[in-house]
Structures are given as structure tokens and as C-alpha cells.
Design a protein around this nucleic acid. Structure first.
Lengths: 116, 116
DNA sequence: CCGAGATACCTTGACATCCTAGGCATTCTG
DNA sequence: CAGAATGCCTAGGATGTCAAGGTATCTCGG
């Protein structure tokens, strides 16, 4: 039987912010993919939600760039899960992305606040 | 001779913010495409830059949705140019996009500020 | 007066990223 | 025991942005 798919959700992740968010969540503590989705939702008070279809390719991408490192461990529930941890390079990348994000926010604020 | 193409620029516009920025610029006063690029650059203090290859499809899209209305006028330089003006529907859309942007910023701030 | 650069419009094709929609296997719960 | 929750993954399509080009007019320095 087809599994119940995720309900439609209008809270799109802005293109380009996904990597930063994942890196940040992983920076808090090693965590597995499924947990990232929940943690993000919890921290952002349900404002942000990553789809699994976006998450796993992103994790694969981030691991390929050397920003995350994965290890299989057993969850509290006694199940095998892939735990992702931030590498030093990942930490550096996260800092850069945060800086870029802040610059962007300031720039956009300038525009949005501009009066004729 | 091939025209000098725009220099590579690392200030990417975050996907999804382009429409909002264009709407806002047009809200200040009717303006033509080429002017939008300059105005945005000026207001954002060179932090944001729209490529022409992104701009014109976006303008076409926004006009199609009824958020912008275009009229041909003569510029100060005595040249024909297409002036874009925000429609009432566009103003509403702009408000919505601003609200969404603020929500997103707050949510991301929550995540980025989260301590283990 | 002529060539370069600025102004002004536009299109095409490539590419990355995200979403929809699925699939599979295990464990917990009613 | 059935179904929900937990956990992993993939394929395909839609969308938006960028790089790179094309056309034409106007202005200004040499």
C-alpha cells in the first residue's frame, strides 16, 4: 500500500537557504535525516519545513562537498539511522553562508524600506 | 562586434526574491527595465544586481499576472522605453510578498540563533 | 566624423534546486 | 494485526536564474 505522502505545505524553503539551514541543524548536534526535518520544524515554530525529496539530495550534496560527514548509528528506538555531523570545512561554510544571508537581508531591507 | 557582456557577479539574487524586488522598485515610480537594474543597484548600495537575462522574463511574467502594467514613453534621453507601473493587484501582491519575507526572516533567525 | 561606450530592448539554452509522488523496511501502538 | 510513525531513498517535472548572445539608437571624445 502506498504510504501516506506528506501533506501539501505552502511554506516553501527559499532557494539557497536549504543548505544553510541543514548545516546549522547539524551543527547543534549529530542528527539523522528524519530528525533534521522535525528539529527544523520545532525550532522554527512550524514556519519551515523541509520535504524529504529535498532533504536527501541536499544531504548527499553537502556530504559530497565535505561539509557533512555521515555515520550509521542506532537510534533510541533501536533502529539504524545515518547521523550527520558538521565537519570543520562545514563550519566554515556555515559561517560564510550566514554572513551572506545577513548581507542579503540588509540589502533587501534597504530596498523594501526605500521611499520614493 | 559582440557587445561587452555583463561582468560576472557573485551577488546572486535569491530565488523568489526577484519578483518582490522588482515590484518594489516599480512601486516607487514608473520605470523602464534598464532603469530597474540601476535603481536597485543604487538603493541597495551595490549589494544587489539583476541580470538582464533574469529581468526581462520576470517583467514579462509579472505583467502577465497583472501585477505590472507597461506603457511606451520617451525617456529623458529621447529614446523609446517601456515604463512599468504597479497595478493595484501588484500592490497587494507586494504586501503579501513582504509579509512572507518577514516571516521567513524571523523563522531563519530563530534557527540561526538556536543554541544547542 | 567615427568609433567606443552607454542606453534600451529582447531571446535562447544550460543548469541548479526544489517539489510531487512515489517505493521499501522496520518498529511502535491501539 | 492493521495502521501510523520512523527511517532510508529515487525519478521526473516545474521553475527560476544565469551566461551569452543579438539589435538599435544616442552621446561624446579624439
Amino acid at each position: 500500500m502506498p504510504r501516506q505522502s506528506e501533506p501539501p505545505h505552502d511554506a516553501e524553503i527559499l532557494q539557497g537557504t536549504l543548505d544553510m539551514l541543514i548545516l546549522k541543524i547539524c551543527a547543534l548536534q549529530p542528527i539523522h535525516g528524519y530528525g533534521i526535518v522535525q528539529r527544523l520544524q520545532q525550532i522554527s515554530r512550524d514556519a519551515l519545513h523541509i520535504r524529504q525529496g529535498s532533504l536527501y539530495p541536499a544531504l548527499y550534496r553537502l556530504e559530497g562537498k565535505g561539509w557533512l560527514k555521515a555515520e550509521w548509528h542506532t537510534t533510541e528506538g533501536g533502529r539504524e539511522a545515518k547521523y550527520y555531523r558538521l565537519t570543520p570545512a562545514g563550519r566554515k561554510q556555515l559561517e560564510q553562508e550566514k554572513a551572506g544571508w545577513n548581507r542579503l537581508c540588509e540589502a533587501i531591507a534597504l530596498v523594501l524600506d526605500a521611499a520614493e
